[in-house]
Design a binder for these strands. Sequence first.
RNA 1: GCCCCCGUAGCUCAGCCGGAUAGAGCAUCGGACUUCUAAUCCGAGGGUCGCAGGUUCGAAUCCUGCCGGGGGCACCA
Length: 562
Amino acid sequence: MARTLSDNDHASHGGPARASATPLEGLRRAVIGAAEALAAKPVGAITLERPKRAQFGDYSTNAALLLAPGLGVPPREVAERLGAALADRLGPSLARFEVAGPGFLNLFVADSWLTGALEQALAAGEDFGAGGAEKPERILVEFVSVNPTGPMHVGHARNAAYGDALARMLELHGHRVEREFYVNDAGSQVRKFGQSIQALARGGSVPEDGYKGDYVLDLAARLANAATMDPGELGHAAVAIMVENIEESLGAFRVGRFHRWFFESALHEGDPSPVAHTLSILEQQGHTYTHEGALWLRTTDFGDDKDRVLVRSSGEHTYFASDIAYHQDKRERGFERQIDVWGADHHGYVPRMKAAYEALGGDPGELELLIMQLVHLVRSGERSQMSKRAGEFVTLEDLVGEIGLDAARWYLLARSHDTTVDLDVDLAREQSNENPVYYVQYAHARIASMLARAGAERVLAATAAVLDPAREPLHAAERALVEQLLAFPAELAEAVERRAPHRIAAYALELAQGFTAFYRDCRVVGAEPETVESLRIALCVASRSTIARCLALLGVDAPEHM
RNA sequence: GCCCCCGUAGCUCAGCCGGAUAGAGCAUCGGACUUCUAAUCCGAGGGUCGCAGGUUCGAAUCCUGCCGGGGGCACCA
C-alpha cells in the first residue's frame, strides 16, 4: 500500500476517512491539501480531471488558476510551487509534472501508482465505487404511476427505465431506496373507464370522451357482467386487471419490483382519512381559506402563481388534495427524500406541489420533482400522436418487440431526461443492430471469452498476486484503461448527483472503447513474461466487472457470449 | 400573455455548477479478417455550438434580449 496515494497524511485529517476511499480520491486529497497549504486556507472548486489530450498528462488541475488571485502571484508560478509541493507529498508515485497554458498543473503519475491503484480496485471487487454517498439517506422514488386506464406507451417506458435506473444508481451509491407506484384508482376517470367498457359490452360504441382501443374491447369481453354492473364498480374491476398488466409489462421491461403499489383510494379510507388528516394540518397552520364555497390552499405564500383548490364547492376533493396527502403520507413514513419522476405534461404542477409540501412543514429541498421530457414518435419523417383517446400509440411491448429489450432500454436511457426525444420507429428497427448497446455487450462477451481461455485458476492467480510494479513500462493502452477504470467511482457519484443515468451509458461506451483499444494493442492470453500476462488478465477482470456493473445499473443484460 | 425544457456534424445525441485544438454513435468515402470473439479495427471528409450583446485571463457552458421547436398554464384526472 505504500505506493498508493491514499495514505498520505492529509487523508487522516478532516473526519473519518471512508474505508472505501478510492485511489483517485487519494490523489485529489493530495492536490487539495497542497493547494490549501499554499493558500493557507480552504479553496473551493478545484478540479482534478483526465485531460482530453495525452500530452497534458494523466491528470490535470486548475488549482493554481484559482489560487493565483488570492496570492497575488502569477498563475504559472503558483502552479510551479504547487507541483513542487505535490512532488514532496507523492514521492515516487508522481513521475513528473508540467505547468502548461495559463497555469494548469499537469500530473504524470508513475506506472507503479497505476498498478497499485488497479490492485486496490480489484481488492474492492464489486464494492469498487459503491457506497460513495457522503450522507446516506432513506429515499422514496416514485415513478411510472401511469393511469391504470390504458396500456403503457413509449413515453411511459422512458419514465420506467429512468426511474428504475435512478433507483439502482442511488442504491449503489449507498442510499436506502424504496420504489413506489401511485395508482390513480379514484375519481371520475375510473367511472368513465367503466362506462366505456360497459358500452362495448352492450354492443354499442364508447362515448365521445371515453376510452378507445382494442384493450377496452378485451376488458369488456373478459369481465363477466360488464353489461350490467355499476359503471364505477366495473371501472374498479377493470383497473385491477390493468394494474396486473402493468406490473407484468414492467417486469418484462426489467424494471425492478416496486416495494409498494400505493392506491389513491386508500387516501380516502379510514377515520380520519389521510386526506382529511392532511387538510386539517393545513387548516390548523392557517394556510387555507374558503372562497365561493370551495376550500383553497394559499400556495402563493410559497411561490406558486395562484392559489389552488383543495375541496371543490361540490364537496369533492381535487386530485391535488389527494396528491398532497400522498406526499404527506410518504413524509410521515420517514423518508428523508422524495423523488418523483413525472412526465413533461405535469411540469406545471411542480410549484404547487412544492408549495404544499412546504406548507405542511417539509423542506422543499427534500422533494425532487424530476420532469421527463416527451418521447415523440416519428414515422416516415412525421410525428405521430400517442393518444389513448385515439387508440393510436406504440406500447411498451411494441417497442420491445421492434428493437429488443436491451436496445430499447439503452435508447431511452442514453439521453438526458430533459431532452425531448424523437423516436423514429422505422429507423430504430433498421438500426437496432447498430445500437451502441451491442458494442458494450460485445466487449463484455469478448472479455468473458478471453478469461475463459485463460482459465479460472490462472485468472484467480493473476488477480490475487501483487501486481509487479517493476515490470516493463506500461503500454499506453494499458495506462489509459486503468485510468478509465479508476474513474468509475467519480462517474457514478456525478451521475447520481445529477440524476443522470445517461452518464453511466456514456461512460460504459467509453470504457468499452478503451477496452477494445487495449485488446487491439495488447496481447493478453499468452503474453510474456508472465507478470505482463497477469497484469493484463487483471485489467480484463476489472473491465468486465465495471462494464457489467454499468449495464446492471441501466437494466441491460451483460452476456457471456454473443 | 406567463412558466418550464430544448436548439451543438447530414441524422440521433453527449459535453453545460467557466478551462487547453468542441466529442460519440449512425450515415458517407477509403482500407484491414491464417492472430485471445470482425456485432470489430484503422483512416478521411463533415461545425458561424440558433442570433446579438454582456461578465471573465478564458464562454458551447454564466447573465440579458431576440428567433425557432416542444410542453404547461382548471372548482379535469
